[in-house]
Design a protein around this nucleic acid. Structure first.
Length: 500
RNA sequence: GGGUCGGUAGCUCAGUCGGUAGAGCAGCGCCCUUUUAAGGCGUUGGUCGUGGGUUCGAGCCCCACCCGACCCA
């Protein structure tokens, strides 16, 4: 064991000591962690199968089951007891009597809530009609040395829920259900893309040149090659190489790493769906997102109006489509639309709004600053914002009618960016010029500016078909669809500062 | 980075004006053969986040720091 963190095992209290003493006694008598018990039924399956069967039927048609799970409830009433076992499907009640169990009943009285048990016996119904197992054989499969949180209040402390997710999960069916929903969402997206003949691929997580996004990377080192490597901030440039290679429709769902702060909407590693679609464009991507969002609503909840943090969101109506420039003017009535590309004018406006600008910022960057400060957080209903300036979109195709802009959009819900898509820049000479402009920004001190990726330019020089590309932030999508306030609620193991 | 709130028994939480640190659940002992937050009697358990300071005396007041939540940048 490493010495990087304090060993929580050394903090003993009398509750743990008592359980440890029980384990020692048990260990002396027989193998304490047996692996021979096999289940033949799950709680929810039994409840469903015998839902219509009453006590008399079960008496006349004995159903013998082997069930196992964690004991989450224990009630001893002298010579008879009840307990509840929880398995991955749900909970099932056990009924235990000294008459049928003998010495095993005395042993059961020493078991603790949290222990993992295996039980065997016939099903019956109690006086109140609850389906239960009349236990005839009982086995302790794994001793729980640590006591569980209060069974009524559960685990309320958010820090413990994040640091010890195993405790949160075993205590909270809601927490288990949220992570099942997360998996359903990802599976829906995979199924939908597979049906459109997209190919799921895997591209490097460790990259010699970090590309595809504006972000600070994590840096690591490859010893054998004596080479600096970066954890990827995006898979974009590799996926587009596959489009050059003729795969035409590809996607990847995997982790990106960005060396930035933590917040309710940011985790240093987060999951992104990126897809690239040859012979398509940004408008078809917007249509795809509308279809995917509706499909997710239908599939998960059977309705298209979802509640998020107390507000209703309607995904059944067509999503609003509006340009960056329109939103800047809509939320800043004092700004003169005719001067939206006047750098000196925009600087004045930024200063008036309290926005700090950098020396090399052009009109496009300044527009985005104003947009992010004044409009973005107000985009509650599903909205596509499009016509992003080329200056802030170094990988996007320029608009044919107005090359100041690109054929790019972002998708917002609840004031948050959920997706970013555009018609891809497939002109190798234009791309090389944009990389050079990024390098100049980097040398001027912008740590998020992109590197020049010579191999990517070489790939484009072989010819990339007209292509549309899309990234969807999976964690934020899951937040929206599960009504989670913090990204940490939808990550099994969110990053926290080290425990002290 | 700034602000607000929080950290007290295993868990959930009280703690008055600065004056011997509490409850419920869990645990332990006893009673109880159909319970549903079962019930009855008894009982163990504390580095009050950490370190300083003020005071005769600090869970409480002051300072710094650590961890978390929320808001802002």
């Amino acid at each position: 064991m490493s010495n990087d963190q304090p060993d929580p095992g050394v903090e003993e209290n009398h509750l743990i000591a008592e359980r440890r003493a029980k384990l020692a006694q048990w260990r002396a008598a027989m193998p304490a962690y047996p692996n021979g018990f096999r289940r033949d039924a799950l709680a929810a399956d039994l409840a469903a199968t015998y839902a219509e069967r009453d006590g008399a039927w079960l008496e006349a048609n004995p159903v013998r089951v082997h069930v196992g799970g964690r004991m989450m409830f224990k009630r001893v009433m002298g010579k008879a007891s009840f307990a509840k076992l929880v398995d991955r499907s749900g909970a099932l009640q056990l009924f235990l009597q000294t008459g049928t169990l003998g010495a095993a009943y005395e042993a059961f009285k020493g078991y603790d809530v949290g222990d993992i048990l295996g039980a065997e016996g016939p099903l019956f119904r109690t006086r109140t009609g609850e389906l239960s197992v009349r236990v005839e054989r009982l086995q302790l499969l794994a001793k729980a040395l640590r006591p569980l949180p209060d069974k009524w209040h559960g685990l309320a402390d958010t820090e413990t829920r994040y640091r010890q997710r195993y405790v949160d999960l075993l205590m909270s069916e809601q927490s288990r259900e949220l992570f099942r929903t997360r998996t359903r969402i990802v599976r829906y997206l995979r199924d939908a893309l597979d049906a459109l003949d997209f190919l799921e691929v895997e591209t490097p997580m460790m990259q010699p040149i970090p590309g595809g996004a504006a972000a600070r990377p994590f840096i690591t080192h490859h010893n054998a090659l004596d080479q600096k490597m970066y954890l990827r901030i995006a898979p974009e440039l590799y996926l587009k190489r596959l489009i050059v290679g003729g795969l035409e429709r590809v996607y990847e769902i995997n982790r990106n790493f960005r060396n930035e702060g933590l917040s309710t909407r940011h985790n240093p590693e987060f999951t992104m769906l990126e897809l690239y679609w040859a012979y398509s464009d940004f408008r078809e991507l917007m249509e795809l997102i509308e279809r995917l969002m509706r499909g997710l609503c239908d599939g998960l909840y059977g309705q298209r109006v979802l509640k998020y943090q107390g507000r209703d969101y309607d995904f059944g109506q067509p999503f609003r489509r509006v340009t960056v420039a329109d939103l800047v003017c809509e939320h800043n009535p004092g700004i003169d639309r005719a001067r939206l590309r006047d750098v000196a004018y925009l600087r004045e406006q930024c200063a008036a709004l309290g926005i700090a600008c950098q020396g090399g910022d052009g009109a496009g960057k300044l527009q985005m600053e104003i947009f992010e400060k004044t409009a973005e957080h107000l985009l509650l209903d599903p909205t596509f914002v499009y016509a992003y300036p080329a200056e802030v979109s170094p990988l996007s195709r320029a608009n044919d009618a107005d090359p100041f802009l690109t054929d790019r959009f972002e998708f917002f819900v609840a004031g948050r960016e959920l997706a970013n898509g555009f018609s891809e820049l497939n002109d190798p000479e234009d791309q090389a010029a944009r990389f050079r402009a990024q390098v100049a920004r980097h040398e001027a001190g912008d740590q998020e500016a992109m590197h020049y990726d010579g191999d990517y330019i070489r790939a484009l020089e072989y010819g990339m078909p007209p292509t549309a590309g899309l990234g969807i932030g999976i964690d934020r999508l899951v937040m929206l669809l599960t009504d989670a306030a913090s990204i940490r609620d939808v990550l099994l193991f969110p990053h926290l500062r080290p425990e002290t």
